[in-house]
Structure formats: structure tokens, C-alpha cells
Design a binder for these strands. Structure first.
Length: 268
DNA sequence: ATGGTAGGACGCCTA
């Protein structure tokens, strides 16, 4: 059997529910992970997701900022909503589900963007981002009681040179500074996670999942970054059948500045 | 070196 999971920073789930419906209708992933839903739980748009067959929905939302959600065709069990950095932000959901006879643990993350100034001494938002990534070391790919784990989300860091349009020009830009990229890769490896997008599309091929709203012509200038990620435990990495970055979604009507990433697994 | 756009909520913060 094949199993697919999509991740998308949607930048307001209420405003962009028509785009979510378009994605689900066109690609029908088994599970959709959303970030930046910007919607308190009591106002989350359950009905259109259920109507499309996504009857199992977990949400962690707050008014105006952040917020993550998981919508699934198959049953989900809530495992954890962890309050990273104890700020009360809604930036994490963990759930387990069954696929191909395996019990899989899924983490959905929205890592803080970190502000503009890449100095933790003068910018508390950057300090928060570094602390958050450090705390993610506690999230392990080897999960007791599970046969494998998947971690997706907007991690707001582009770790490799080929994850940005210009490594040299972004070295001092938040999302690609050495303190972020080195801490990020160290955290990923310490947790036992495999970077599935790079397993499927090795360096030096460029991968971008985000293009700024501020570009005059995002497609022409193509100054993108890979801020969204799909990781798995080593137990699931050999089953990866493909990864697709839906660049076209950046050109949809009133788009998010991030595009969906869909991973497909072939589970026996 | 700078400013550029977008969303939530309605002044200004965050991305």
C-alpha cells in the first residue's frame, strides 16, 4: 500500500480554506499537516475538511498567531501538544496512526521565524528560535511503542547551501545563519532523523518551499528558500517512494508564501 | 543600503 502526507504553512486556514480544498481534491494525501492556521480552536473550519473525507482532525490554535493542525482520512490519536519554551505558543502537535501494519508517530512543527536581527543578545525572537531548536533535541525518531516516526513542518531554517537562492548573500539573514543551520543539522542528527527531501533530491540541486511576498515577481527572481521539511526515522526512510514540492501553488489566487510538500511512502 | 507584501484585527505586531 502507499501512504502520503502533505505539509503546508497556510498563513491563515480560514482565509485559504479554498486553496486547502483544491490541494486535497487534486492530490488526496492521506494526512495533511498545516502550520500558521492563525485561528482559535472554536473557529477552526472543520466542516469543509470533513466534507472532503478528512474526518479526523487535531488542532492547536490561538488567536491571530501561529497554530498547527492535522487533518486525516484515517484515525489519529493525539499523543502530545508540547509547549516549547513554555511561552504558551501553539507550535506543535504529535499524533499516532496506523499505516501498512505499522504504528507511526507524527510530529507537526511550526518553528519561530526569529525576527530580523540574527543576534540573540539583542533580539529576543532570535533567542527564542535558537532555544526552540535546542529543545527539539528531545524529539527522537526512535519512539517507544511505535514502528517509525515522521516529523514535518515549517522549521523556518534552510540548512544547506542548495536550500537558498544565494548562500553567500543569505549568510547573515535569519533562516540561513551558521548558528541556525549548524544547530539545526546537529539537532536533526542527534534525534536520529533522515532529511527525506534531500534523500530524494540530493545536493547540489536547489529545493525551495517558500518565496517572499515582497518580491515583485517571485517566479522570475526565484529567490526561494527551503523552510519546510519532511523527516523520518531510519526505519521508514527506505520506504520513501517520492517527494513533491508543489511550486505551482505559489501562483494560485491569493497564495500562501509557502507551498505544500507531499511525501509518498510504499509500505508493504 | 533599503524597502518591498501579506494576515489578523483595527493600531501595530509578526512573518
Amino acid at each position: 500500500m502507499t501512504f502520503s502526507i502533505a505539509t503546508w504553512n497556510i498563513n491563515s486556514v480560514r482565509l485559504r480554506m479554498p486553496l486547502v480544498a483544491q490541494l486535497l481534491t487534486q492530490r488526496a494525501p492521506d494526512i495533511l499537516c498545516l502550520q500558521e492556521t492563525k485561528t482559535p480552536d472554536e473557529l477552526f473550519p472543520h466542516a469543509p475538511l470533513r466534507a472532503l473525507g478528512y474526518e479526523h482532525i487535531l488542532i492547536s490554535g490561538q488567536k491571530g498567531y501561529h497554530g498547527v493542525a492535522i487533518a486525516s482520512r484515517r484515525p489519529l490519536k493525539l499523543v502530545e501538544k508540547r509547549d516549547f519554551c513554555a511561552k504558551g505558543d501553539c507550535r506543535h502537535l504529535a499524533a499516532s496512526f496506523e499505516a501498512g501494519g505499522r504504528t507511526i508517530l507524527l510530529h507537526n512543527f511550526y518553528v519561530p521565524a526569529g525576527g530580523d536581527e540574527p543576534d540573540p543578545e539583542i533580539n529576543p525572537k532570535f533567542r527564542h528560535k535558537l532555544d526552540f531548536v535546542e529543545e527539539m533535541r528531545g524529539i527522537r525518531a526512535a519512539a517507544p511503542g511505535h514502528d517509525g516516526a515522521i516529523l514535518v513542518g515549517d522549521l523556518n531554517i534552510a540548512p544547506l547551501e542548495s536550500d537558498v537562492w544565494s548562500h553567500r548573500q543569505l549568510l547573515n539573514v535569519v533562516s540561513h545563519t551558521p548558528v541556525e543551520t549548524e544547530g539545526f543539522e546537529a539537532m536533526r542528527k542527534a534525534g536520529g532523523w533522515v532529511d527525506l527531501m534531500r534523500q530524494h533530491t540530493p545536493e547540489p540541486q536547489k529545493i525551495y518551499t517558500w518565496w517572499s511576498y515582497r518580491a515583485q515577481d517571485w517566479r522570475a527572481s526565484d529567490r526561494g528558500r527551503r523552510l519546510d521539511h519532511v523527516w523520518s526515522s531510519a526505519t521508514l526512510a527506505p520506504q520513501l517512494a517520492g517527494i513533491e514540492v508543489l511550486k505551482d501553488a505559489r501562483g494560485w489566487d491569493r497564495p500562501s508564501d509557502h507551498v505544500p510538500v507531499i511525501a509518498r511512502f510504499a509500505l508493504d
